[in-house]
Design a protein around this nucleic acid. Structure first.
Ligand SMILES: [Mn+2]
Ligand SMILES: [Mn+2]
Ligand SMILES: [Mn+2]
Ligand SMILES: [Mn+2]
Lengths: 218, 218
DNA sequence: AAATATTTTTAGACTAACCTAAAAATATTT
DNA sequence: AAATATTTTTAGGTTAGTCTAAAAATATTT
């Protein structure tokens, strides 16, 4: 049996370690989990005993194969529920994350596989993130961050890094969504802001925005 | 803040007390919650402090108005999710209860109201139980139990008391579902079994079955 | 390479939800 | 109305997940 709290730690370790590849340290986990480092140490020990994590004192933590599988499965559920909320229940993309944080812990194979079918096996969630299949496989989406885009080139928006409501609402208010086509007009060296051309407007976005919006060349 | 465990106790008290009307005693709660009486006492005290229950030592417990509202809301969520599972995800009526036990604790007003709309405001769940609206109101469904049906009369099946998978599968295997029309042929005084006529068969059901199937005269 | 700073772990405590065993209250028999 | 049985509560303990404060290990500066 795996608890809800254990699941959340595993997911945090997976994301912090760049999809379960790198070692993650205690303080980083404490920060995203909103707890103290000492609590994290306790939990890492437990995850290690349960064979979800590899842990050597003072040396950080990585996920085992089992741990990665747990993580990918929770992410699958999270993202499928996000699609459901947007596609079927008329949520907007800035409202789904919070609810999906809870729905992702419902344990029923049949539920999630039927949901997947009901949604017609979507490949990405409302933020452009890939949805793992039953076996835990998913494609890496090709994308670059707006901050590193070439001047003059034309791109399609394919994802966001920050999924906070405030960022997504900002994008909404500037008519930027997944699929939106933009052209890079100018990069301002002074503050790293970027001027982009949209369908019928031209706007300047801050470095902060430029670091959180993913693009693909068209 | 109300915990998942508190919610489950409140729901149990509501159901045991005949929709929050009657006093419920400690042992009865312990039985349905699968815990010990001493744990129940602890929890009742907590619910009483939080104003969800009225409690006098040794005198059993009733729900307050707040407590009943919590209960009805969880039941609303439970039953809407059951409808969703059957109508949209192709679950059968004997598979939904378990999953709904978890889904009923997801806390999001918007989620449940949108789900309600998506399902087109269903009035009952897959077991014939009424679904409370946003305000917590629901109609009492008129029904009698098969055990008390009149010989010779014709009825429609409108609900079940036992929602266990084994009972529901038994009904399935005998082609009895909600909406099925039956005629009462004979009551056997020896063991209280009842002979009923279906569309193209005649079967004898045990007292146990007769006590768990609800009917309405047609 | 020593001193200092940072990170991580340990030690000991707290709360929620549970347990067992014993005591107290209430209900039922005699 | 006593005696007995049943129900409920209390007392004290356990586990998961958290905390603070202090100790230990590692990293960075001087
Ligand atoms: Mn999300
Ligand atoms: Mn997402
Ligand atoms: Mn149910
Ligand atoms: Mn039901």
């Amino acid at each position: 049996m795996i608890t809800l709290t254990e699941e959340n730690y595993i997911k945090a370790i997976y994301h912090l370690g760049n999809n379960g590849e790198e070692t993650v340290n205690t303080n980083a986990i404490a920060e995203v989990m909103q707890t103290k480092a000492s609590s994290v140490t306790d939990m890492i020990k437990k995850l290690s005993e349960k064979k979800y994590a590899n842990y050597k004192k003072y040396q950080g933590v990585t996920l085992t194969k089992d741990g990665r599988f747990v993580a990918v499965n929770i992410i699958r559920k999270h993202r499928l529920w996000e699609v459901f909320l947007v596609e079927k229940l008329n949520f907007s993309w800035d409202e789904v994350h919070e609810v999906a944080e809870h729905l992702e812990h419902i344990k029923s194979e049949k539920l999630i596989n039927q949901l997947d079918a009901f949604l017609e096996f979507p490949k990405h969630d409302p933020h452009g993130d890939p949805i793992p299949d039953k076996e835990g496989n998913f494609q890496h989406i090709e994308k670059i961050v707006l901050a590193k885009a070439e001047i003059g080139a034309v791109y399609k928006c394919v994802g966001v890094d920050d999924t906070s409501s405030s960022f997504l609402k900002y994008l909404d208010s500037n008519n930027i969504g997944l699929g939106t086509i933009i052209k890079i007009k100018h990069k301002e060296p002074y503050d790293n802001s970027i001027k982009i051309e949209l369908k019928d407007s031209e706007i300047v976005v801050s470095q902060n925005v430029a670091k959180n919006l993913y693009l693909k060349k068209v």
